[in-house]
């Protein structure tokens, strides 16, 4: 559908920019704008007219934490550039402390809290990945593993058979232990994927993975005795963890004049 009446276009654009176009009408207008250059132009014209009014407001300085958060989020962007992932924003993960972790899996899995850093990384990966949408028949699995809201590792499975573990923030601790990566299905015990480096990327060949990597499946890294867990199950503190997000990336480039991105 397309609007043809120039007066109507201008009126709708003016009320969109003023802000009085609301609710369903506003959403519909935004949709129409995606495919209608005349609408975008009308909006750009009205933005040029009205938006400078905003200059009349008395400035109010935002608190410092706003910038700190922005910086953290765009910092995450830089980290994610290395992952070159096509992912979605449905990353999840939350922060918990070490010891009681394994015993409380069901508890925090139920929370479904989206870690802001993880979400930012995946969003950024989406925005910064290939400029056109690529729908892969076998979408890449990605998880951002966090510790207290801070991204430490990105786990990717570009295709079945191996897993890439990319370092975001190295530990560089004393070399008297090993880090072990686990995959934890929604209803099952943790399975070891292998040992990962505490300072550089690790590629793990894993051809016998019997866990289906679906949304909600969890990755976690535990601290284990040198050589890995002696029992085949995690024994040490959880250093970071994150829930899988998978979906073919579908992004559209930002539209000029739309003012909403």
């Amino acid at each position: 559908m397309k609007l043809n009446n120039p007066e109507l276009i201008s009126r709708l654009a003016s009320e969109y920019v003023l802000g009085t176009l609301r609710g369903g009408a506003r959403r519909r207008f935004v949709q129409l704008m995606q495919h209608d250059a005349a609408l975008r132009e009308a909006v750009a014209t009205w933005e040029a007219h009205l938006t400078p009014l905003a200059d009349l407001v008395e400035p109010i300085a935002p608190p410092r934490r706003v910038w700190n958060n922005i910086e953290a989020r765009i910092g995450a962007t830089a980290a994610s550039n290395r992952s070159n992932a096509e992912t979605n924003q449905n990353a999840a993960g939350n922060a918990i402390s070490g010891g009681g972790f394994w015993g409380s899996l069901p508890f925090w899995r139920g929370l479904g809290v989206v870690g802001s850093t993880a979400a930012a990384i995946l969003l950024a990966a989406t925005l910064r990945s290939a400029p056109v949408a690529v729908v892969s028949p076998d979408p890449m699995v990605v998880a951002v593993l966090e510790d207290n809201g801070e991204a430490r590792l990105i786990v990717e499975q570009p295709k079945s058979g191996y897993v890439m573990v990319k370092m975001v923030k190295p530990w560089n601790g004393p070399d008297d232990h090993s880090l072990e990566l686990w995959v934890i299905p929604k209803d099952g015990a943790p399975r070891s994927i292998g040992l990962v480096s505490d300072s550089v990327d690790t590629k793990l060949i894993k051809t016998d993975m019997d866990v289906r990597l679906t949304d909600g499946t969890l990755f976690a890294v535990s601290k284990e005795p040198k050589g890995g867990s002696p029992t085949g199950a995690p024994t040490g503190a959880v250093l970071c963890k994150g829930v899988i997000a998978r979906m073919p990336a579908k992004t559209s480039p930002p539209r000029p004049g739309q003012g909403q991105i």
Partner: peptide, 9 residues
Amino acid sequence: KSKLFSVSL
């Protein structure tokens, strides 16, 4: 930042 924060607030 201060203009934009005020606009939003």
